[in-house]
Design a binder for these strands. Structure first.
Lengths: 157, 157
DNA sequence: TTCTACATTGAGAATGATTCTAAACCAATA
DNA sequence: TATTGGTTTAGAATCATTCTCAATGTAGAA
């Protein structure tokens, strides 16, 4: 892994995502559905559900099936290119997804919405937590890593 | 409410929950299914799913239907007698429930398990977080209250 | 570039979790 | 004890996700 291609600067609204390069780096095939799905996920801050992503990419390629959305999202998550956000609230709430790699906290609301915590508050909270506490918790649970999530208190509706 | 039947001592593993009194206090009807479900939920630390609870209470009253489990759990959550825990991991993970009122953190793992954080770590982490940060986040989200949840990092499997 | 092997896709069926429906039932109150 | 309205039940309905497998497309070899 001695590539020298991390020289391009960020340019667009958010960041630049060269899907092709990123997929190559991860050793996963570059297909049209994957590019469309990944770019759609990168270019939104709304933490869409699989269904919502399907609506978006169908505008660009009517043939993409919902199963492909699910397959691709699982692939992205497995390769660390996206996160699945725990679903909340009543009923059959759909999972939501996020490709934003910058460290930030999610506020998971009971109505299903997920919003990003403002950067300053996100940082304040994260910095306040002793690193070793999270580590000890992970050890207690027998897992590699844990992260914080902020969820609405279930009492309130 | 001047009954004199709260004299029987705690006998079971954990705490005593006088379902009848608690339901009365909340102004909700005391029915056999509700008592069984609530007591089953109180007497375990395993954060069972609706399905798991159904298995448990069916041993005591074979007629209880799964729909009643769901109805009752929703009722308990609405009255603050139980919490619904966000579901994780792949696929159709079932929600888990907890009637433990003592303040404690949940560790939500990718395989669907939910375990309680040890009291000391739970306290360390909670105490470390500035109260006003959580408040500001709640305000930002437009909700009454937020709480922390610790989830396994999705990258690890 | 063309060919080939094999991963990926798409449509729909299958599964799992939760909610809905309507009729039978029962707890609280008078 | 009778009444009334909330509760329960069984099963159907709904929603989210996964599975199946034939058709397709990609990456690498020739």
């Amino acid at each position: 892994m001695v590539s020298v291609d991390h020289l391009h600067h960020d340019d667009c609204t958010h960041e630049h995502h060269d899907a092709k390069a990123i997929f190559a780096e991860q050793g996963i095939r570059c297909t049209k559905p994957r590019v469309l799905i990944y770019e759609a996920l990168c270019s939104t801050k709304s933490h869409p559900t699989a269904e919502e992503l399907h609506q978006i990419v169908k505008d660009q390629d009517a043939g993409i099936s919902l199963a492909t959305i699910y397959n691709t999202l699982e692939l992205l998550v497995d390769h660390g290119l996206a996160r699945r956000i725990a679903n909340r609230g009543q009923g059959s709430g759909a999972s939501r997804y996020d490709a934003d790699q910058a460290p930030h906290l999610h506020l998971v609301l009971n109505d299903g919405r997920v919003i990003d915590a403002p950067t300053n508050l996100s940082k304040k909270l994260t910095d306040a937590i002793p690193h070793e506490v999270l580590q000890q918790l992970a050890q207690h649970a027998g897992v590699d890593a844990l992260k914080i999530e902020i969820v609405e208190d279930t009492a309130a509706v």
